[in-house]
C-alpha cells in the first residue's frame, strides 16, 4: 500500500477511535491515537495476515502489550474486515467481543492473547518467536509496548531472553509518547536512555518518528533484514496525536471528550485527509 493510502486509513482509524470511545463512554484515547501509524503500517503493509482467516498458521503475530490501546487495534481489524465496522459500537458494552482490554476468550478475530496488565507482552512475543524458530517457521512476531510500561521489570527479563535466544524474528515497538497516568515519564520514573538500554541488552535498535510513514516503513523493513538479534523500534510519538486539544496532554490518557469536542476532533481529522 502507498503511503498516501496509509495516511487515509490512519485518518479513518483515528475517527473510528474517537467515535467508538465516545459511544463507550470510557477508555483510552491518548495512547490509542499515538500508535495509529505504527499499527496501520504493520497491518496494512508489513504483516503477513489474512483477515479472512486470522488463525492461518502462516500469519505473523501481533501482541498488544499496551492492552489499553485496543481501540486502535479494533479499528484496524475492522478496517481490514475481520469483523464489521458496526461492531466497534459495542466497545466496552456488556456481552461485547470488544472488551475494555483485549480478551482472547471472547473470540474476536485477530486477538492473539489477552493483555492489559502491563509488562507481559514482550515475554509472550518472545515465547511465540522461540516457537516459530524451533518449528523452523519464518513467521514474524510484533509486540507493541508503551513507554511507561518499560518501568515493569518483566520487560527486562524478556529483553534479556530475546537477545540470549537470538530472536531475530521478534520486533518490539515502543510507542514513546513520553506520558503516563501520573505525568511525564521522566518525572515519574525515568526510562531514558531507553535506546541505550535495549542496545546494551543486545538488541538492534531503531529510533524513528512514529507518525512518519517513511520512517515507520523503513524500520519494519530493516527489522526483517536483521539477523541474529531482536529489533526494538523506539518510535517517538505524540499522545493524542491528530486531535489538537489532546496532543501531549496526560489528562487524555483515559478521558472521553464531550460531544462538541468529538465533533471538533472529527472535523480536524477530515481537514487533514483533504490536505
Amino acid at each position: 500500500m502507498e503511503i498516501s493510502d496509509l495516511k487515509i486509513v490512519s485518518a479513518n482509524v483515528r475517527k473510528d477511535i474517537v467515535k467508538m470511545l465516545e459511544l463507550a463512554g470510557s477508555g483510552h484515547p491518548g495512547g490509542s491515537l499515538s500508535a495509529v501509524e505504527l499499527v496501520v503500517g504493520l497491518y496494512f503493509k508489513h504483516m503477513k495476515f489474512n483477515p479472512k482467516d486470522t488463525n492461518d498458521l502462516s500469519r505473523d503475530y501481533f501482541v498488544l502489550s499496551k492492552g489499553h490501546a485496543c481501540p486502535v487495534l479494533y479499528a484496524v481489524l475492522a478496517r481490514l474486515e475481520c469483523f464489521s465496522l458496526n461492531e466497534l459500537c459495542t466497545l466496552r458494552k456488556i456481552g461485547s467481543r470488544l472488551q475494555g482490554h483485549p480478551a482472547k476468550d471472547k473470540k474476536l478475530p485477530g486477538i492473539e492473547v489477552s493483555t492489559g496488565s502491563l509488562g507481559y507482552g514482550l515475554s509472550i512475543g518472545a515465547g511465540i518467536s522461540v516457537g516459530m524458530k524451533r518449528a523452523k517457521k519464518n513467521n514474524k512476531v510484533y509486540v507493541l509496548m508503551g513507554d511507561g510500561e518499560q518501568q515493569e521489570g518483566s520487560i527486562w527479563e524478556a529483553a534479556m531472553a530475546a537477545s540470549q535466544f537470538k530472536l531475530d524474528n521478534l520486533c518490539a515497538i515502543v510507542d514513546n509518547n513520553g506520558l503516563q497516568i501520573d505525568g511525564a515519564i521522566k518525572d515519574v520514573m525515568n526510562i531514558e536512555p531507553l535506546a541505550d538500554k535495549y542496545r546494551s541488552f543486545g538488541w538492534n535498535v531503531l529510533q524513528i518518528d512514529g507518525h512518519n510513514f517513511f520512517e515507520v516503513d523503513r524500520a519494519y523493513s530493516q527489522f526483517k533484514e536483521t539477523k541474529d538479534k531482536p529489533t526494538a523500534i523506539i518510535a517517538k510519538t505524540v499522545k493524542g496525536k491528530g486531535i489538537s486539544y489532546m496532543e501531549n496532554l496526560t489528562e487524555w490518557h483515559g478521558k472521553i471528550p464531550s460531544k462538541e469536542l468529538v465533533q471538533k476532533a472529527l472535523e480536524e481529522i477530515d481537514v487533514l485527509i483533504k490536505k
Binding site: 492473547v113 515475554s123 515465547g127 516457537g131 518483566s154 527479563e157 531472553a161
Partner: peptide, 19 residues
C-alpha cells in the same frame, strides 16, 4: 534463567505458537 515472570510469559507464547 532466574526469571519466573518471563518463564510463564514465554510458556504462554509457546502455547500460542502451537506447542
Amino acid at each position: 534463567g532466574i526469571a519466573e515472570t518471563n518463564l510463564l510469559g514465554m510458556a504462554a507464547g509457546l502455547a500460542i505458537a502451537g506447542f
